[in-house]
């Protein structure tokens, strides 16, 4: 089965890294995964999007066509990609105001706030978001994702990022319990 993820937000939020870790976790889980991205010429700011396709089978087309999960961390990302959502679930940061024009199923989760206040570092919002995505989708196991996080984050930040990932899984579990 093919599962498509779209991770969207602002350049510099680390969504590309989150996408890479998700894909690597899937590979460690013996699945196939492809990660692609689109970004503007700016190094910071501007719209940023990473996509991950995970499947047990051969993946021919590498991009998301009808995402199963959209992660949106900014209002801009939510409004532009939310409108394109069909069957999938939108996971949006709790700071983003709901848009009545966006009809797809949506869960609102305090990702940015958890990173800033619970973990104490805004920069790990991407890894909190990754834990949320993985927890809700159940596509990649937590243990493999932890290995992938350790492989990919800067040296010396492993523990910080692992606690962010675990917090993300907790947020996902809480969201599932109330859904």
């Amino acid at each position: 089965m093919r599962t498509e993820f779209r991770l969207s937000g602002s350049g510099g939020q680390g969504l590309l890294l989150a996408g890479i870790v998700l894909a690597e976790g899937a590979i460690l889980d013996n699945k196939n995964a492809v990660q692609t991205q689109s970004y503007g010429p700016e190094a910071r700011g501007g719209a940023s999007k990473a996509e991950v396709v995970i499947s047990e089978d051969d993946i021919d087309y590498p991009k998301a066509t009808d995402p199963d999960y959209l992660l949106a961390l900014t209002t801009e990302a939510y409004t532009s990609y939310g409108k394109l959502m069909g069957k999938g679930l939108i996971i949006v940061d709790a700071s983003v105001e709901p848009d009545p024009q966006i009809k797809a199923r949506t869960v609102r989760i305090p990702i940015l706030d958890t990173a800033a206040t619970v973990i104490g570092k805004k920069v790990v919002a991407n890894i909190v978001a990754l834990g949320v995505l993985a927890g809700i989708s159940g596509v990649v196991s937590q243990s493999k994702l932890e290995t992938a996080v350790k492989n990919r984050v800067p040296q010396g930040t492993e523990d910080l990022n692992l606690s962010a990932l675990r917090k993300g899984f907790e947020l996902a579990a809480a969201a599932k319990a109330t859904a």
Binding site: V34, T36, Q37, P62
Partner: peptide, 9 residues
């Protein structure tokens, strides 16, 4: 750009 930046197993 797609093939150059795409990550795959």
């Amino acid at each position: 750009e797609v093939i150059g930046h795409m990550r795959e197993k």
